[in-house]
């Protein structure tokens, strides 16, 4: 089995990236490619589903930091959902909940994008 994989589903304007396995320094580049592809397509509404992510390291989290400004400058956002407690703990330790929105379910995260659009 592969150490890390990312699968992409487009739901209207929002893209859901489903992460699986271990996101660390070795696999970070693969994930970066996935996000780069979205930037190239001008898709800036992104939900990252982490229900199947077993581990994330600082390097993995660094990828999000590398894109969040570009995403928000284009009125988009990266929202997280279904983060298991072990993974969330790392996010929490490094202060990510102050910067990113975390949701319990994919539909909540998607709904939040819907809400933002309705308010525009």
């Amino acid at each position: 089995m592969e150490k890390f994989s990312v699968t992409r589903t487009d739901e209207g304007d929002v893209t859901v990236l489903n992460l699986q396995g271990f996101l660390d320094a070795h696999t970070a580049q693969k994930f970066e490619q996935a996000l780069k592809a979205l930037m190239n397509e001008h898709r800036y509404a992104i939900v990252v589903d982490m229900s199947q992510l077993d581990y994330i390291s600082s390097a993995g989290m660094g990828i999000f930091m590398g894109f969040i400004e570009e995403v928000r400058e284009n009125r988009g956002d990266i929202k997280f959902c279904c983060v298991n407690p072990r993974v969330f703990k790392v996010f929490d330790l490094l202060g990510f909940p102050n910067i990113f929105e975390f949701y319990a379910s994919r539909s909540e995260a998607l709904g939040q994008f819907q809400k933002t659009r309705d308010n525009l």
Partner: peptide, 30 residues
């Protein structure tokens, strides 16, 4: 992790990339 990652590569650009990913994630840097 970075030690491990760095040991496995001898490409300069790769080393710098791994370093920056880790810094950005650990310190929330853009």
């Amino acid at each position: 992790e970075i030690g491990e990652g760095l040991l496995s590569t001898l490409e300069e650009q790769e080393i710098l990339k791994i370093l920056c990913y880790s810094l950005a994630g650990q310190m929330t840097l853009s």
